[in-house]
Amino acid sequence: MVKPIIEVFDLTAAYGDFVLLDKVTFDVRRGEVFVILGGSGCGKSTLMKHLIGLLRPAAGRILIDGGDINNASGQERADLLKKFGVMYQSGALFGSLTLEENVMLPMEEFTKLPPEARRLVARMKLSLVGLERFSGHFPSEVSGGMQKRAAIARAMALDPEVLFLDEPSAGLDPVTSAGLDELILRLNKNLGVTFVIVSHELASIYAVADRVIMLDQTKKGILAEGAPGELRDHDSNPFVHAFFHRETAEVAG
């Protein structure tokens, strides 16, 4: 079996004394689209921030391609950071740079490519997300969906193996959201990029996810794990059932 690209062992996530996730263990396989889902406040975004090294685990270990980001420093950490790209919920594009310059920024910092090569790579990344015509625009001049796609292009600038997407479809209309799902699948299939997506949009979960984990606030851990279709049809847990059938918790309980 191929070694998983992300391995999480007994991760405990806490803010001070408040434990949000208790001893969570899972792994993400190379080349899959992996979705972290759950109700509001269950720690989805916190889990992702731990995976990308923004928050330190209270206990446990996170390995990305065999490297521990929390105990790496210097060059080792820089190399690990290059293995993944992150799209933040609101895009987090730099407002003072054009879309093209946003994508060029990581290349400027981490490669010795000449300017025209950087520009061409940036244009190719933007064309992958369908924004070639908008490369000279500033983030404030394009729509929210375009900003998210540009953020994906920027996350891909250094050809990472893993892309983390925080709520990619939040705040988008169904058509744009479906376009984004298609983009995710295309990049996954053509470039072999592994995706880790935080989401609670049922439609897009069915469309893209190979495997999901569902977090729960009261259990402080993983409530269910598997392919979304299977969880929908076969999971006996009332909350999982309610989530996948869009019922209220009372009906389910």
């Binding site: 244009r123 190719m124 490369s135 000279g136 001049e141 053509n190």
Partner: peptide, 13 residues
């Protein structure tokens, strides 16, 4: 995917 990418960059505003 880049077959149709124009050689010259799109015109900036």
């Amino acid at each position: 995917p880049f077959d149709h990418l124009p050689v010259d960059p799109a015109d900036a505003p």
